[in-house]
C-alpha cells in the first residue's frame, strides 16, 4: 500500500496504490487518523492504481467520507478501475461520494 499526496487548486489529491483489503485498509485508516485530524480542505482520492477493494476498504472509505462531511469538506473519488468502481456502485457508495473520471475532470 502506497499513499502519495499532492495539492492542486486547494484540493488535496490522495493517490492510493495497491490493495484496500483488510490489511491495506487499516494502513489507510492509520494514515488518515494522522493526517485528517481534522481535515483542512477538500479531498479527492485517486484510485487509478488501486487494484483491489473489499468490504474492509469500503468501511475505511465510509469513515473517511463521514469525517469529511462532518467537517464540511468535499470528498470525492476519481479514476477508479472498472472492477473497483463496480464495487463502489453495488454498495451504493456512488450515491454519496461523487465519482470522477480523472482529477482534471473534477477540477474542470
Amino acid at each position: 500500500m502506497n499513499i502519495t499526496v499532492s495539492q492542486k487548486n486547494d484540493v488535496m489529491i490522495v493517490a492510493v496504490q495497491g490493495r484496500l483489503d483488510t490489511i491495506g485498509s487499516s494502513e489507510l485508516e492509520d494514515w488518515s487518523n494522522k493526517n485528517f485530524d481534522p481535515p483542512k480542505c477538500d479531498v479527492i482520492m485517486d484510485f487509478s492504481r488501486l487494484d483491489y477493494i473489499s468490504s474492509a476498504g469500503l468501511r475505511t472509505i465510509l469513515n473517511l467520507s463521514k469525517l469529511m462531511k462532518k467537517n464540511s469538506w468535499k470528498f470525492s473519488i476519481c479514476s477508479a478501475q472498472a472492477h473497483v468502481k463496480e464495487v463502489l456502485e453495488i454498495s451504493g457508495f456512488d450515491t454519496f461520494i461523487p465519482l470522477y473520471r480523472s482529477v482534471d475532470d473534477y477540477l474542470a
Binding site: 465510509l62 463521514k66 462531511k69 453495488i90 454498495s91 451504493g92 450515491t95
Partner: peptide, 21 residues
C-alpha cells in the same frame, strides 16, 4: 440497505452482500 443516506450508513454486512452479488 445500500440505499440509505450516508449518515445512516454502516459498513457492516457489506462483505457478504458483495459475495452474494
Amino acid at each position: 440497505d445500500v440505499h440509505l443516506p450516508i449518515d445512516q450508513r454502516k459498513a457492516g454486512g457489506l462483505g457478504l452482500y458483495l459475495v452474494k452479488h
